[in-house]
Design a protein around this nucleic acid. Structure first.
Length: 197
DNA sequence: CATGGGATTGACT
DNA sequence: GTCAATCCCATGC
């Protein structure tokens, strides 16, 4: 799998969020096709970088092409790709994957917190689920996405670019009206079906 | 220094 | 549908 170059991320975060649908996310022998993303930008209050530079947002405001991984609800690690030029706080949250490789290791990692054997469709159908399935942790924060252990690669050969659906972002309380969530149309691996705008 | 709120998930009623 | 788990850190006194 060929990794996307760093300059792919040094562009408007909405473009990157759309174009990452259909690309692959891989770590430690497991990989999936990205089917759901959300864009965040420092100009709107749902973005962590809205408040400016703090210890938490250091990575988010840093150079593009790196991982921004943070803890959510005290429990889950959420994975983002940092975008736009160094100094601009913007990132794409990866919310769901269509499992492509290493399904067995995904299943065993997910089984540590799920009582029933997880179905394939539930392995990566959420931002906290996919980091667990791939073994991505807070230790990967600020790591390169082009040469690090966590890689984002081009769309697999022979796989068509999916049709996109825009929707409102999930689980936020501010700037809820922005249609900055992007889904692969018809995917069975989404965290939630996209609603009407 | 104390408090409160999450870019969530899974179990339970 | 409801609810607890559990940590980082921004905010306010």
């Amino acid at each position: 799998m060929k990794a996307l170059p760093a300059d792919f991320y040094e562009r408007p975060v909405l473009e990157v969020a759309r174009e990452l649908i259909g690309c692959t996310l891989a770590h430690d022998g497991a990989a999936g096709v990205i089917v759901e993303t959300e864009a965040y930008h420092e100009s709107e209050p749902a973005c962590h970088a809205f408040v400016g530079l703090t210890p938490r947002t250091r990575t988010l405001l840093g150079p593009p092409g790196r991982a921004y991984v943070y803890r959510s609800y005290g429990i889950h690690a959420l994975f983002n790709a940092v975008c736009e030029p160094d100094g601009v706080g913007a990132a794409v949250l990866i919310r769901a994957l269509d499992p492509l490789a290493g399904v067995d290791s995904m299943r065993s990692r997910r089984a540590r917190t799920v009582a029933a054997p997880p179905r394939e469709v539930d392995l990566c159908s959420g931002p906290g689920k996919l980091t667990q399935a791939l073994g991505i942790t807070l230790a990967h924060n600020d790591g390169s996405l082009c040469g690090g252990p966590v890689l984002i690669g081009e769309r697999p050969e022979g796989r068509r670019a999916p049709e996109l659906i825009a929707a409102r972002r999930i689980g936020i309380s501010r700037a809820v009206e922005l249609p900055w969530r992007f889904c692969a149309a018809g995917s069975r691996h989404l965290s939630r079906p996209p609603g009407a705008l």
